[in-house]
């Protein structure tokens, strides 16, 4: 890893103090999961299929052509989209335009500090974001040009990637990039037989570990995280991303739950865009 001399880097080998405290999400996971799901309630005291309240606003970055701010509980995401520009360092002509996506966690967004350079997870998220958005954008309308999409997660409280996809869809629409449909995304966590829509950070960590079904027995429960992004009018899944260990039936059920969850967000996205347009028209008329 090349050293970044322009910024203050932390010492090379440090550990978060949280690892040694009781609030460490990785300690006693087995017991925690038993305690939490024993009463059939989630850690966040929501219903299993209930999403958190979303705040969505577009046109927050004045320098960008289009931008959106997405807040769901403590997950805060800013997306900015810039005008199409010629693809740098490209020799051959491409018939379809390109999306250049950068997904970045702010250094202070997670319990452990994130570096300034993209790590493997952020690069992976950028790639997922790109694939999800590509099928929503009419790329043939801007051949040989690229549109830049920058996502910055200010605070991560779970489901950051699906928040980023939804917000990026709004930002692209506001920037006037031709699109086929609105794009919305949702996350589902699975732990044992529990399916948790829109998990927060704590629930996400719990869904990432395999625990034994019974004490002493060497059989693991299913667990995992699924992210699905959907073009709602066309009923097309533009990206499905899953990690963990799940059976086919669970995934089928998850796809149904998630397509419902993504549809719930659509009116909000539409309202946000309509509000923005009417507001702009009014100011135009006044001028």
């Amino acid at each position: 890893m090349p050293n970044d001399n322009r910024r203050i880097n932390g010492p090379e080998n440090t550990l978060s103090y949280r690892l040694f405290s009781n609030s460490n999400p990785h300690s006693n996971v087995q017991k925690k999961i038993k305690d939490i799901f024993k009463n059939n309630t989630r850690p966040s005291e929501r219903n299993f299929s209930e999403q958190r309240k979303i705040f969505l606003k577009c046109g927050v970055v004045s320098q960008a052509k289009g931008s959106a701010y997405f807040e769901v509980d403590n997950t805060k995401v800013i997306v900015s989209v810039y005008d199409p520009r010629e693809i740098p360092k490209k020799t051959d002509y491409s018939l379809k335009g390109e999306l250049y996506c950068v997904f970045k966690f702010a250094p202070f967004s997670c319990p452990t500090r994130r570096g300034y350079q993209q790590d493997a997870e952020e690069k992976q998220n950028s790639a997922i974001l790109k694939r999800a958005l590509e099928s929503a954008v009419c790329r043939h309308k801007f051949p040989n040009f690229q549109v830049d999409v920058y996502v910055l997660v200010l605070e991560n409280d779970g489901s950051a990637l699906s928040a980023a996809i939804t917000a990026a869809g709004v930002a692209l629409a506001q920037a006037g990039i031709p699109m086929y449909d609105t794009i919305t995304a949702a996350t589902l966590g699975v732990q044992g037989s529990h399916k948790i829509v829109d998990p927060n950070l704590e629930e996400e960590t719990l869904c990432n570990v395999a625990v034994y079904k019974n004490e002493g027995e060497k059989k693991y429960e299913s667990h995992g995280i699924i992210i699905l992004s959907m073009l709602s009018t066309h009923e097309q899944v533009s990206e499905l991303y899953q990690t963990g260990n799940l059976s086919l039936d669970t995934i089928n059920a998850a796809i149904n739950i998630l397509s419902k969850a993504t549809k719930e967000i659509v009116p909000l996205v539409e309202k946000c865009l309509v509000n923005h347009v009417t507001k702009n028209l009014k100011t135009d008329v006044e001028d």
């Binding site: 099928s135 533009s238 991303y241 899953q242 990690t243």
Partner: peptide, 21 residues
């Protein structure tokens, strides 16, 4: 062992949920 550990959609296309399943 008949259980999914990772799913990802590659390429730039999209699929109907039924086709996906």
């Amino acid at each position: 062992q008949n259980r999914f550990t990772t799913i990802l959609q590659t390429g730039s296309g999209s699929l109907h949920p039924n086709t996906l399943i």
